[in-house]
Design a binder for these strands. Structure first.
Length: 434
DNA sequence: GCTGCCGGGAT
DNA sequence: ATCCCGGCAGC
């Protein structure tokens, strides 16, 4: 639904322009003038360098400026990365060719972006992530996936859960350059199709070296690739810098087969729901399980807004919350009303709290409205085992009227204030449900 | 046309 | 979350 076109990308996320010192625009637009698609994040990041150069040459001011630009870098150790960046980004300007400089700019900004957004890159991904690290990284990845929906080009965003920065690494990757992206997709396709049938989440590591775009599935492999091919093996520095020249891309497969939940089996085709829930990747080595405490609570925003990615196996319980918030006066009305022996003038209506909704088949009958997967799961688990195929065909059926008196009939329009709330709101009658 | 209520907007 | 209403469909 988030059909934001590429041109809609603001490019500068929350605090984007505010974070960078003034005067950042002019110096860099010249470098990127012929490729407007190249991430504006890059422009932004690089422009900070220029601005700082303009403002002062002291290393101290540079450091503060960087931390100002991107708070995420603070916990990473800004000076260390600055060293690597400045080595490629600043010094050679005076004598390198414009193309080389441009590539350096791109690369430096990519490195910065990936560094600040991807903790997996900051620390060796598979050495010893530990449970906390893996879970937090999974959260990060989720944030990235979510951002990718908005179509922004890696703008800065702060993760909802733990306050960590979580720009979208994958978006940055995809937007980096069209030809490179194509190249990467080809390679990625080759490597990934092999594993496609079974895995649901995976991370790939992409080399950020200019015009390389090599994609590997293991961090060790990508490190070795960078070290050997680009940095040149041997030097101590190269072994440390290799981290900066790759980034991790989280991918998801369209797995309709990963652990089919009972509800999904019974549901039949509900592909959109599957996809919206499975928009999260995670590192290949780390486990997918996000602790419930870490998982963002289901925001009550109905509709396909930022769908919280979660493994499919957990989809049903999470959507349970949504049901309660969305269809409160319907889904949460186990209160059955015995309508039969009533005098017409009587105000009384006897709500019997019998949970035996299943004894009343019409109650179970799905209404004609779009039912989420989770909701059907709920219905299946809460109520009687429904028919094995509560397919959406029933949704086209609109229940007939006249089976029970409604508030309008009982009280009349003139006594509308005595109607139940739902009737007043033109919703399904709560007081006299069919 | 009346009625029930879904879907969605407004606050 | 609450309130309201347009509009659809069954009668």
């Amino acid at each position: 639904m988030a059909a934001m076109g590429p041109e809609d990308r603001a490019g500068v996320g929350p605090g984007g322009t505010a974070g960078c010192p003034t005067g950042q625009q002019a110096s860099t637009t010249t470098h990127n003038s012929n490729r407007p698609d190249v991430q504006q994040t890059l422009v932004y990041a690089q422009s900070c360098v220029h601005a700082e150069k303009a403002f002062g040459e002291s290393h101290k001011s540079r450091t503060s400026g960087w931390s100002n630009m991107a708070a995420p870098l603070q916990n990473v150790g800004p000076t260390m990365h600055l060293g690597s960046v400045s080595a490629t980004g600043e010094a050679p300007y005076s004598f390198r060719s414009p193309e080389s400089v441009e590539m350096d700019e791109i690369m430096a900004a990519m490195v910065l972006t990936s560094l600040s957004c991807n903790p997996v890159v900051q620390s060796p991904p598979q050495t010893d992530p530990g449970p906390a690290a893996s879970s937090s990284s999974a959260d990060m990845e989720c944030g990235g996936g979510e951002l990718s929906d908005s179509g922004s080009s890696g703008y800065w965003s702060w993760d909802h859960g733990n306050g960590s920065p979580a720009p979208s690494p994958s978006v940055t990757e995809m937007d980096s350059s069209p030809d490179e992206g194509l190249h990467m997709e080809l390679e990625q396709g080759e490597e990934l199709t092999a594993k496609k049938p079974r895995s649901s989440f995976r991370g790939v590591y992409k080399c950020l070296w200019p015009s390389c775009g090599k994609v590997l599935t293991s961090s060790v492999g990508i490190k070795r690739h960078i070290r050997v091919l680009h940095l040149g093996s041997g030097s101590d520095q190269s072994q440390r810098e290799e981290d900066f020249y790759y980034t991790k891309i989280s991918c998801e497969t369209v797995d309709a087969s990963s652990g089919p939940a009972p509800a999904q089996q019974a549901l039949g085709p509900a592909p959109s729901s599957h996809l919206s829930w499975a928009s999260c990747g995670s590192p290949p080595g780390s486990e997918l399980q996000i602790p419930p405490a870490h998982r963002p609570r289901s925001n009550s925003s109905s509709g396909p807004g930022p769908s919280r990615p979660s493994p499919l196996s957990q989809s049903a319980p999470s959507s349970f919350w949504q049901i309660h918030s969305e269809h409160l006066y319907q889904a949460c009305s186990p209160v059955q009303v015995s309508v039969a022996p009533r005098s017409p003038g009587s105000q009384g209506w006897t709500p019997s709290t019998s949970v035996s909704g299943h004894t009343n088949p019409p109650m179970v009958k799905p209404r004609c409205r779009s039912v989420s997967v989770g909701e059907q799961w709920l219905q299946q688990n809460r109520l009687q085992p429904m028919s094995a195929s509560p397919s959406r065909n029933h949704c086209s059926f609109r229940k007939g009227r006249g089976e029970a008196k409604k508030c309008r009939k009982v009280y009349g329009v003139e006594r509308k204030d005595q109607w139940c709330t739902a009737c007043r709101w033109k919703k399904a009658c709560q007081r006299f449900p069919d």
